[in-house]
């Protein structure tokens, strides 16, 4: 009988200790899960905050560009137009003095050039067509402005696929194209550039390709503004991949969701 109770006590002790061990294991796994979940949430919050900061920075930059563009277009260009008109009146009222006339001609020429330049800068900063008619017509205008030079051919396959409504998101797409075109024109010496928009499920895949001299991406990332493109891709909730090597042209594939 005594042996019975001793064994019973020992068995109970073993069972209690096993229950304790299982409790510790359960607590460990549960606490680990909770901690990793809270760490994940904190990380997510941090990422969201960083994204918000980035978005605000880019948004502010775009608003500032828009403001400067409008100032240049509405104010500076108009002022230059008025000065030009006044110079014209002045020239008509001046006595016949060929020396003075040629100076006025030169001033008129400078004013004209300044006016054109300010319009061009204004357009680069924020294309009027984009603001007034949207991305599709802005792209068409971009094609015309490149092809009219005769040094390169730009084709855009864009069947009005983009359904995004957020003006800033559309502007990101436009800026990405602008940045890529800038690289092709400035550095790549490309002759042919193509931009294709392809719908894949709920996403749009934009493929940008040029036949220029290409580059070593591992060395040129900073200089080519690829970081800016990456930022814009992030703000589009998408991603972008670049492929290029020396003398093999340049390829960029941007994927983004086609909804706001």
């Amino acid at each position: 009988m005594e042996g019975d109770s001793i064994v019973l006590y020992i068995i109970i002790s073993i069972l209690v200790s096993l229950l304790f061990a299982l409790g510790v294991i359960w607590f460990l796994n549960h606490a680990q899960k909770k901690i990793s979940q809270s760490r994940f949430r904190a990380q997510e919050l941090k990422l969201n905050f960083q994204r918000l900061m980035l978005e605000n920075t880019v948004r502010t930059k775009e608003q500032e560009r828009d403001r400067i563009s409008r100032e240049l277009h509405d104010d500076v260009s108009s002022q230059l137009g008025i000065v030009n008109l006044n110079m014209h009146v002045l020239k008509q009222r001046m006595p016949d003095d060929h020396g003075l006339e040629s100076i006025i001609d030169q001033i008129e020429m400078s004013i004209k050039k300044s006016s054109e330049r300010s319009r061009a800068i204004s357009h680069e900063l924020m294309p009027i067509s984009f603001k007034k008619f949207g991305i599709h017509l802005a792209l068409e205008e971009l094609v015309d402005s490149i092809n009219v030079t005769g040094t390169m051919t730009l084709t855009v396959e864009n069947d009005f696929l983009i359904e995004l409504k957020d003006e800033f998101k559309l502007l990101h797409i436009y800026r990405v194209i602008q940045e890529l075109l800038n690289n092709s024109v400035k550095y790549a010496k490309a002759k042919n550039i193509s931009i294709d928009f392809l719908p894949i499920g709920t996403e749009i895949e934009m493929t940008y390709r040029d036949d220029g001299i290409g580059c070593d991406l591992s060395q040129n990332k900073e200089g080519l503004g690829l970081n800016n493109i990456n930022t814009r891709a992030t703000l589009l909730d998408g991603d972008v991949e670049f492929t290029s090597s020396i003398n093999k042209g340049f390829l960029a594939v941007l994927k983004f969701p086609n909804y706001d």
């Binding site: 064994v7 020992i10 200790s17 096993l18 304790f20």
Partner: peptide
């Protein structure tokens, strides 16, 4: 290791008692 040694510890701590009970009971432990 934890599960194994928690049981080992109980057995070791009660070893003096276990040795004094009959082998029929001891075997259960």
């Amino acid at each position: 290791v934890f599960i194994n040694h928690i049981v080992t510890l109980i057995v070791m701590l009660s070893s003096n008692v276990v040795l004094n009970i009959s082998s029929d009971y001891r075997i259960i432990i």
